[in-house]
Design a protein around this nucleic acid. Structure first.
Length: 298
DNA sequence: GAATCGTGGCA
DNA sequence: TTGCCAAGATT
């Protein structure tokens, strides 16, 4: 019999200790929740919060974002990272405005059909914006479940089907409680059951924690792939895009060439940015953010 | 399943 | 200083 997690104990802790984040406020719209979830993908809360506020003031509904140009959206995305998220969110907003009456869908399968929305985000929106009962599995939840339920030091490689089944088995039956529990589970992983040095002394569920009972054994699974950054295409693409974000209009290639010494890698990255639709080239040969080549849309 | 895709803070 | 890590999605 697998160890479980007492939902009410965890929810009580969440009520007391959960962070007061703006997208958790009662007056936050489903659109606000969706924007937050996209921005928070692989990105720390502290970096997201100010940008999220700007976006909500500027684009309070999907149709408002849809009316903006891709360049404006990329500029407003700033340095949150993974800028393709911004383009996909723009696409999703366009679809929501055109096909869903400007209302963020509440159905998981409908959400999954939108660009940039995967297994996690679809269920997070369904749960946090609409109070639905769905297994919301992110990196925090996977770690908490690995420890509290399975007694492992950390989660192994992600397996969507297995991980969601694990979490589904923990969810309270009542819809409202399930959504609250999901938020609490994530928050526990973010604040207490952290990756590096978990604060077990402050954990509301440590009494029943399988990892605690097993003597907190070290993680025994396969080594996690460490992502390099320095010298990768990701870094070069970031440098190139940063030039365009910081310039008023289109720039000549010389302005882009200065950001990286290796011409081969530089050109390859510029090509990939063009392919991804993150950069456009004007007829005169200059480069700009999409929609800002000075040639109009038509 | 594995690789790829940004950025910056912190131990 | 440097490696690890942060509310993933897509191919």
């Amino acid at each position: 019999m697998a160890v479980s997690i007492d939902a009410e104990t965890l929810i009580d802790w969440f009520d007391d200790c959960g962070r007061d984040l703006p997208w958790r406020h009662a007056e936050c719209t489903p659109w606000g929740v969706l924007v937050s979830e996209i921005m928070l993908q692989q990105t720390p809360v502290a970096r997201v919060e100010p940008v999220w506020h700007e976006w909500m003031a500027r684009w309070p509904a999907p149709s408002a974002l849809a009316a903006a140009s891709q360049g404006e959206v990329l500029r407003a995305w700033g340095k949150l990272g993974y800028p393709r998220r911004a383009l996909r969110l723009h696409e999703a907003a366009t679809a929501i405005a055109a096909e869903h009456g400007d209302v963020v869908p509440s159905d998981v399968d409908v959400l999954l059909a939108l660009p940039g929305i995967g297994a996690y985000t679809a269920r997070a929106v369904a749960a946090f914006a609409y109070g639905k009962r769905a297994p919301v599995v992110d990196t925090n939840v996977r770690r908490v479940v690995a420890r509290a339920v399975h007694g492992a030091g950390d989660a192994g490689p992600a397996s969507n089907t297995r991980d969601m089944a694990d979490v589904a088995a923990l969810l309270p039956v009542a819809e409202g409680r399930a959504a609250r529990f999901s938020a609490a589970l994530m928050e526990l992983g973010a604040l207490v059951c952290t990756a590096r040095s978990p604060r077990c002394a402050d954990c509301p569920v440590h009494e029943r924690c399988a990892w605690q009972r097993a003597g907190r054994p070290a993680y025994a699974g396969p080594a996690k792939a460490v992502q390099k950054f320095a010298g990768t295409d990701r870094q070069v693409r970031g440098l190139l895009l940063d030039v365009l974000r910081g310039s008023e209009g289109p720039v000549w290639k010389e302005s882009l060439d200065v950001v990286w010494p290796d011409a081969g890698q530089r050109d390859r990255c510029l090509d990939s940015l063009l392919v991804d639709g993150l950069v456009e080239q004007a007829p005169d040969g200059r480069f700009a953010l999409p929609g800002e080549t000075g040639q109009g849309v038509s």
